[in-house]
Amino acid sequence: MCGRYSLAKTKIDLENRFEAEMLEAFTPRYNIAPSQLVPVITTESPKGFSHFYWGITPSFAKNKPVANKLINARAETITEKATFKNAFKKNRCLVPADGFYEWKKIGKKTKVPYRFVLHGESIFSMAGIWEEYETEKGETAHTFLVLTTAPNQLSAEIHDRMPVILKKEDEAKWLDVRTQEEELLGMLGPYPDDEMTKYTVSPMVNQVANDSAYVIRKTLPMDQFGNYTLFG
């Protein structure tokens, strides 16, 4: 799954990378978590950034709090699940990131956090779908989720899923409503592992409130209690 990611870049970095305008203020984010409001680029507005909540409310569960929403969808069944089928067809989005986190389980109680990045820690796009829903107050809100796929060799050492990372040349096609389903599905495989790297980070990432540059620094392997381990 993908349950935490980073976007440690500036507003200018994002605008230059995607050739899109961001009207809202943005500061680098180091520890993005579900339920938070973050920038995406949608099929409806490919030349501008929108700010959506991470976590989609299924059509059968409207008005639930954001924290109770789904956050990921399996790419392999995206056209089969009634919850996601329509969004995949019409409401796709790019989810800008520069890294994502996974936790390696060591024994029954120990987990070590890792950050996965592209070489050079450059910005990339995770494949997403979005939805509009009505809040309990009758207001309109927008949410998104991240598609996941089988892991590449690098990620498989830590977890059995990874986010779908789109190749830069596929981003415009992903946002184009005219792109055929077969071509879209062809984009949803694991990203080449030789274009990525991973490293251990501080267990501070476990706490959502810790959203500082310290979170993305390389550290010696430590478990969730901050104890050094030889098994990172």
Rank of each mutant, 00 (worst) to 15 (best):
K104W: 07
T197K: 14
K137F: 12
P113W: 05
E181V: 07
E183L: 08
I123M: 04
T143H: 10
E121N: 15
E131Y: 07
E139M: 09
T83D: 10
K111Y: 15
T149A: 00
L175E: 12
L184T: 02
V164W: 01
P163K: 14
A172T: 11
V95K: 09
P151M: 08
R92I: 10
G99W: 04
Y114H: 14
L166A: 05
M126A: 07
T197E: 15
H159A: 06
T149Q: 00
R161L: 07
G99V: 06
Q180H: 14
C93N: 08
Y101C: 00
I165V: 13
K168H: 13
K90M: 10
A82H: 04
K111L: 04
G138I: 05
R115N: 10
K89Y: 12
I129Q: 03
E132T: 15
E157A: 12
K105E: 06
A150C: 10
P151I: 14
Y114G: 05
E80N: 10
D170M: 13
L147T: 02
K109W: 08
A156F: 05
F144D: 08
G120I: 00
E181L: 04
P113E: 14
K198D: 11
E171F: 13
I78K: 05
L94Q: 09
K198H: 11
A75Y: 01
E132P: 05
E102T: 00
T79A: 06
G128F: 09
M187W: 00
K173G: 07
A150Y: 07
L166H: 03
E183W: 06
Y101E: 08
G186Q: 13
L166F: 09
P96Y: 03
I158A: 02
S122Q: 14
D98K: 00
R74D: 11
D98A: 01
V95D: 04
L118Y: 12
L154N: 04
D193N: 13
E76L: 02
P151L: 03
V117N: 10
K168D: 03
E182P: 13
P151T: 10
A97G: 09
G107C: 01
K89P: 07
M196L: 11
V164D: 02
K89V: 14
L188T: 03
D194C: 13
V177D: 11
A75M: 02
E181P: 04
G189W: 01
V177F: 04
S155T: 09
W174N: 09
T140W: 15
T143R: 07
E132K: 15
I106A: 06
L188P: 02
V117H: 04
G138W: 06
R178P: 05
E182R: 11
F116E: 01
V95M: 05
T149F: 00
L188R: 00
T179L: 06
D170P: 02
F84K: 10
M162P: 14
H159K: 09
M162N: 11
F116Q: 02
E181F: 01
A141W: 03
K198P: 07
L175C: 03
T83W: 15
G128R: 09
K167L: 02
Y133S: 15
S122C: 08
E139I: 13
T143Y: 06
N152G: 05
E80C: 08
I165C: 01
E102W: 03
K168C: 00
A97T: 07
M196P: 15
F88D: 03
E181Y: 04
K137R: 07
I129S: 13
K198L: 08
K109V: 12
E157C: 04
T110P: 03
L147E: 00
V177E: 12
T135N: 09
